[in-house]
Design a protein around this nucleic acid. Structure first.
Length: 579
RNA sequence: GGGCCUGUAGCUCAACUGGUUAGAGCAGAGCGCUCAUAACGCUUUGGUUGGGGGUUCGAGUCCCUCCGGGCCUACCA
């Protein structure tokens, strides 16, 4: 039995995430976690809300709430949605936890001890009206290059020129619109990543089996221009982890907090500590996942994330871990994803374009979304959600291929033999052929899951379902029943056992439907098959079962059109008028 | 501007380090079955692998160039 540590990139606290966010990390990591548990490994599956930073403060202010209160509420909302999508986190933590505060301060202290922290005095824009320093992108003004009057302090969206906030003509706060701005001197801590460039480079180069998407982004940052740059890890904000050097105060850094991208990855560790606390366990319980000197040397650690998160996970966080010179567990494999687009464009929170997690669950059960999203997960390039594809995929795969198979087998049995596994006859050549075909497909399925090739795994799983329909067509128990009821009984017994097998094999992708099948087959506790032939003898003659309700109702054309209209977002005219 | 990714049948995608007539699923067409959510099965039509050039005995795969799509470019997270 192996031990697998799995983390999914932390969703930001600011609002409800859309399906693009969901499929970009949480959903594939959940499938992987469920699969690894199913085949008998010990799994620690961690996620958390990323709660610090300027956007959280602003969102709270907009909602008229204290930021801590706002985060508490939004965490509960996101936790609830995670449950709704059946995300099987062992712990869904919060980056604002006491554990994370302590660990973040600890890491900063270690890095400082090892000469990897530098104090840098720099100039930042302060807004009197807002009472805060403004991050570059929260300053707007006229672009000195093209004259666009809504250029941001980091880059002009119109001419794409990169800017410094001080370059802007007539700068104003993007929050309040105030022009009462002042450039102030302020001191910040920088993580001296540049000192660790060679070490990081060597480490990345050793990861030859990682997705190109992952390594190419890392290498770009390592080698672009002057190479890896040092990075500011503190901010002038009130909401965040207060800057401390371990347990000690950090002279000159009073009133400052760590930058979210410093504390967020550390929350992976802290959330595991939160898990231990929540279960009444001691420190050893979480340290055996994270400290190679305390049992984590045999742990395989896999991270999931969207491509926008790759630099932080390939460089900043490893620099933090390595730079501590403590025996913390480093990631073994980084699975990164491209983006999911929505119907010809991007998902857009601000424009209300696309489907958000709460809305999705209002419309259809989570398995519908899980299946379609996972079978279209953007592994090799950006992929696209369209209502037509969604309807076709769900109806064909889930309703017709799998749902209808369960339906036809159970109903046929009930009408001819009653709701018990029928007795008589024996498996013959046809069944042996099916077993062989399933064995081959399961081997492929497992190999693809092992390699985290999600799309290919869905194709294997679907092919396994199809084998059931092919078998039934060939065996035709409805005609056999007339002249040889015992032969028909053996066929039906085999088919009922297929349903039980499908429940187990499908669980990582569609856990609710899997549970429905398991319950209907009265087969609680069914284990992952190591021997397909034996697994298909699990339900003996006389074993009672029940006919489940229709597992997947089809999405009608009317429903599809309705949803498409509802989620189109603001009209094109409205968008144009706005810009 | 620079870097990276990507372009394969109407749609969504495969094709290990270049190696036989480029494969699946969906959609379309035909046939079969009737247990089932008019579901299922079988057969079948679709491709000068974005265009052009080159290397090679051999190119979807390598090189050059052009065209299209996307991402990143370090203070949003």
């Amino acid at each position: 039995m192996a031990r697998i540590l799995i983390t999914s990139a932390l969703p930001y606290i600011n609002g409800i995430k859309h399906l693009g966010n969901l499929i970009g990390s949480q959903l594939p990591s959940d499938v992987y976690a469920r699969y690894m548990r199913a085949i008998g490994n010990e799994v620690m599956f961690i996620c958390a809300t990323d709660e610090h930073g300027t956007p959280a403060e602003l969102a709270a202010a907009k909602a008229g709430k204290d930021v801590a209160e706002y985060c508490r509420e939004m965490h509960a909302v996101q936790q609830d949605l995670a449950n709704g999508f059946r995300l099987s986190f062992d712990h869904y933590g919060r980056s604002s936890s006491p554990q994370n505060r302590k660990l973040t301060q600890y890491f900063a202290g270690r890095l400082a001890d090892n000469g990897l922290i530098e104090e840098v005095s720099e100039k930042q824009v302060y807004s009197h009206a807002d009472g805060r320093f403004l991050p570059d992108r929260y300053i707007e003004g006229t672009c000195p290059n093209c004259g666009y009057d809504r250029a941001r302090g980091d880059q002009c969206e119109n001419c794409t020129k990169q800017l410094d906030p001080t370059d802007l003509i007539n700068p104003r706060s993007a929050i309040s619109g105030s022009t009462d701005l002042e450039v102030r001197e302020t001191k910040h801590l920088y993580l001296r990543q540049s000192k660790m460039r060679d070490e990081l480079d060597e480490w990345i180069n050793s990861k030859t089996d990682w997705p190109i998407l992952t390594t190419s982004i890392a290498k770009k940052w390592l080698h672009d221009g002057d190479g890896l740059k040092d990075r500011g890890i503190t901010r002038d904000l009130s909401w965040g982890v207060p800057v401390k050097r371990g347990e000690a105060d950090w002279p000159g850094m009073e009133g400052k907090v760590f930058y979210v991208w410093f504390d967020a990855p550390i929350e992976y560790i802290a959330a595991t500590a939160e898990w231990a606390e929540a279960h009444g366990l001691d420190d050893e319980a979480w340290q055996r996942w994270w400290r190679t000197d305390k049992g984590a040397d045999d742990v395989k650690y896999v991270q999931f994330m969207g491509k926008d998160n790759v630099p932080f996970h390939t460089l900043s966080f490893p620099a933090t871990i390595m730079g501590s010179r403590d025996p913390w567990k480093l990631v073994d494999y980084i699975k990164s994803f491209n983006y999911l687009n929505y119907d010809g464009g991007q998902f857009s929170t601000s424009q209300g374009r696309g489907v958000f997690m709460d809305q999705a669950l209002d419309i259809l059960p989570s398995d519908y979304w899980r299946w379609w999203l996972l079978s279209h997960v953007p592994e090799s390039s950006d992929s696209e959600f369209t209502w037509e594809n969604f309807q076709q995929g769900v109806n064909k795969d889930l309703a017709d291929v799998l749902g209808n198979f369960v339906s036809r087998v159970t109903k046929f049995c009930r009408s001819k033999f009653g709701e018990v596994v029928p007795e008589g006859g024996a498996y013959g050549e046809a069944e042996i052929a099916v077993i062989k075909a399933i064995e081959e497909r399961v081997a492929s399925y497992q190999a693809n899951m092992e390699a985290i090739e999600i799309r290919k795994s869905t194709a294997d799983l679907r092919a396994i379902w199809v084998l059931g329909n092919e078998y039934l067509q060939e065996a035709a128990p409805w005609s056999k029943f007339k002249e040889d009821p015992e032969a028909a009984a053996a066929i039906v017994r085999f088919a009922l056992n297929l349903i039980r097998l499908y429940a187990v094999l499908s669980e990582p992708f569609i856990p609710d439907a899997a549970q429905t099948m398991t319950s209907a087959m009265n087969a609680e506790g069914a284990q992952w098959p190591t021997d397909i032939s034996a697994a298909l003898e699990s339900l003996p003659a006389g074993h009672p079962f029940s006919v489940p309700d229709v597992m997947f109702a089809k999405i009608t054309d009317e429903q599809r059109d309705e949803m498409q209209a509802k989620f189109a977002g603001k009209s094109k005219a409205a968008e144009l008028a706005q810009s």
